[in-house]
Design a protein around this nucleic acid. Structure first.
Lengths: 242, 242
DNA sequence: TTATATTTTAATGAATTTTTAAGGTTAAAA
DNA sequence: TTTTAACCTTAAAAATTCATTAAAATATAA
């Protein structure tokens, strides 16, 4: 059987090169691109059997856009795609899987594991469609409805407009109703491991979220502060502890 | 929380000192070494939680050698390492990443960013260890329910509000039901090894905890004083033993 | 590009938590 | 009984954490 060709689409040259070295060592042919545009150009000329795609890419297209284009092309509609991402965000993961990606790996990753996963994907390269459902499409908590499919949030019958970050934050907290998350965990989950900003930035987003979904933002019913520990989502409709 | 110790391995005293001052200001304990040899000596005697390593070092070993040795030791195989380098060389970066370093910063660097990166590396380290949650999510002792996920405590059907320290103290004692801890051990476990305050401060927190969870705080059922020895948690539901 | 929306930083004050300190109480030893 | 050491209790000082706002920086869309 001919050598398989793997394309890495990743803007960090260090990661790209490290992957390239390791994949070559494993016996794959490797192509690299630093952006989605570049990747599409290369794909025109070379045969690619597998894509490793970073979500965060420079330029007008991100990794999702690239995957969308690839999957809509005749040549690559069933070529495996593995997503690399800085954040372990369920929404991103779902989005990727819905686009037809085969795996989702969070940076920083273990190289051995990554190689194993690639091998495994090649092995079971049958009809993929093993999309695992992650939670309900709609989250309803009292007067709050979060539609994760339409990306809409309704409060007391009104559609409210959230920014992407606010939406992700709300969905993450709501999907883990009751569980307390400290700021560091939230930064990792929603901003990604390579976020170098201030931890207080979480507070500000919580505040803005509250002004949008709470009746009285200073006395929140949904997004609760657990002093010294973090924040949690509460469903005011549910009764006490069991 | 205990203070983290960062070791700087850098031969340029100007850079070393500048980093040292800034890291101290951020609340870290700082150790310095001017060569790999020196670093290895210090590591024998002191606990180090993070290494900042310059690649170009005087003597027979360079930064890569040092990292290789550290990573092969049991004590530091998973201690974070940040590489400082004068050249923004992809090959060096790759080599560093392959050795297991966590970040790579090129001189001259922005101090603010460096501090942020260190913080971020610590962040994902702690979140990684938080993943392996041990013990049950709920601790139940007679009329007392401790929910370690929601960070809630229920007493006789009522939700009581504890401060972070009170909560941690209660969880620690309850997880070790029956075992007696003296004040010094409690200070070590809950305040951190570098706490230099009064040992009586434990009494005060025990007192406040009792007023919140005990029916009669002066005749406690849950948090028992063992005179001359310390405190222990008891489950009044269980039968007594000698 | 400019304009607009979003995100981050920074700074203040308020509220809560933690520590200190000091006198009171209790239990065991002298 | 007296003494002593350990513990309890309370109040106030000190430190920390959070909410809030506005402005600066950044990203996105027109």
């Amino acid at each position: 059987m001919a050598k398989k060709t793997i394309m890495i689409v990743e803007d960090d040259p260090a990661i790209s090169e490290m992957l390239s070295i390791n994949l070559s060592k494993e016996g794959y042919d490797v192509l690299s691109a630093g952006s989605a545009d570049e990747a599409l150009k290369v794909v025109e000329e070379k045969d690619v059997d597998f894509f490793i795609v970073d979500i965060m890419l420079p330029g007008s297209m991100d990794g999702f856009d690239l995957i969308r284009i690839l999957k809509s092309s005749e040549a690559h509609k069933s070529t495996p795609v593995l997503i690399l991402s800085a954040k372990d965000d369920a929404a991103d993961k779902v989005a990727g899987l819905e686009l037809g990606s085969d795996d989702y790996v969070t940076k920083p990753f273990n190289v051995r594991e990554l190689l194993a996963r690639i091998k495994s994907i090649f092995r079971r390269q049958t009809t993929a469609s093993q999309m695992k459902e992650e939670g309900p499409k709609k989250i309803i908590a009292k007067d709050l409805i979060i539609d994760t499919e339409r990306l809409e949030v309704w409060v007391r019958g009104e559609l409210v407009s959230l920014t992407p970050l606010e939406f992700d934050l709300l969905v993450f907290l709501a999907k883990n109703e009751g569980k307390v998350f400290n700021r560091d965990v939230l930064l990792d989950k929603l901003w990604g491991y390579d976020y170098y900003g201030d931890t207080r930035t979480v507070d500000v987003h919580i505040r803005r979220l509250r002004t949008k979904i709470e009746e009285d933002p200073s006395n929140p019913k949904y997004i609760i502060t657990v002093r010294g520990k973090g924040y949690k989502f509460r469903d005011p409709g549910k009764e006490k502890n069991d």
